[in-house]
Deep mutational scan, measured.
Amino acid sequence: VTLFVALYDYEARTEDDLSFHKGSKFQILNSSEGDWWEARSLTTGETGYIPSNYVAPV
């Protein structure tokens, strides 16, 4: 499992996005959609889309 960590805070703009804070960790579920990845937050357990340029591999 590849884990990613948030580099910045992000406020969701749609109900499909995940809001998160810098330092939040994610499991990436689908990275084939270009700049928006489907991810599960390891902090909240919620699933949604995150901007790929806001995260980096742990």
Rank of each mutant, 00 (worst) to 15 (best):
G45K: 05
Q27E: 14
K25R: 11
V1P: 10
L3C: 11
F26M: 05
I50C: 03
D16A: 14
L42H: 06
V5E: 09
D35F: 13
E11K: 11
S52R: 11
W36P: 04
T47P: 01
E46H: 09
A6F: 01
P51M: 07
G48E: 00
L29K: 05
G23F: 04
E15Y: 09
A6E: 00
G34I: 12
Y54S: 11
K22I: 09
E33S: 13
T43M: 09
D9P: 06
S31P: 10
A39L: 02
D35H: 10
S19Q: 05
S31A: 13
W37M: 06
S52V: 08
A6G: 04
K25M: 15
N30W: 07
A12C: 05
P51D: 05
L18E: 00
E15L: 11
E46T: 06
T47S: 09
L42D: 05
E46N: 08
P51G: 03
G23V: 01
G45I: 02
R13P: 07
D9W: 03
A56K: 10
T44Q: 03
F20W: 01
R13A: 11
A12D: 02
S31C: 14
A6S: 05
Q27Y: 14
L42F: 07
D17W: 11
I50M: 01
W37I: 06
V58A: 10
Y54V: 05
Y10I: 01
L29Q: 05
E11A: 10
K25D: 03
Y54N: 03
L42C: 15
V1W: 14
R40I: 14
T43P: 05
H21F: 12
V55I: 10
K22N: 04
T14S: 14
L7Y: 03
L18Y: 05
I28K: 04
S32H: 11
L3W: 09
D17K: 15
E11N: 09
V58D: 09
W37G: 00
A39P: 01
Y8W: 12
A39M: 05
N30I: 07
L42S: 04
K22D: 01
A39C: 05
E15Q: 12
R13Q: 14
I50Q: 00
T43V: 11
L42M: 11
E33W: 10
L42Y: 07
T14K: 13
L42P: 04
N53V: 09
D16I: 13
G23E: 04
V55L: 12
G48R: 01
E15T: 12
A6M: 01
L42G: 02
T2M: 13
E15H: 12
A39D: 01
S41E: 12
T44F: 03
W37R: 01
G34D: 13
W36N: 05
T43L: 12
Q27S: 07
L3A: 06
E33C: 12
G48F: 04
S41Q: 07
K25L: 15
A39W: 02
G48Y: 03
D16H: 15
F4M: 08
P51T: 02
S19T: 09
I50K: 01
I50S: 00
T2G: 12
F26L: 08
E15A: 13
Y49W: 15
A12H: 06
V1H: 13
E38I: 15
S19F: 03
W37V: 06
S32C: 12
I50Y: 00
H21R: 14
F26T: 00
L7K: 05
G23M: 03
G23H: 05
T14N: 14
V5F: 09
V55G: 01
L3G: 03
T14Y: 15
N30K: 08
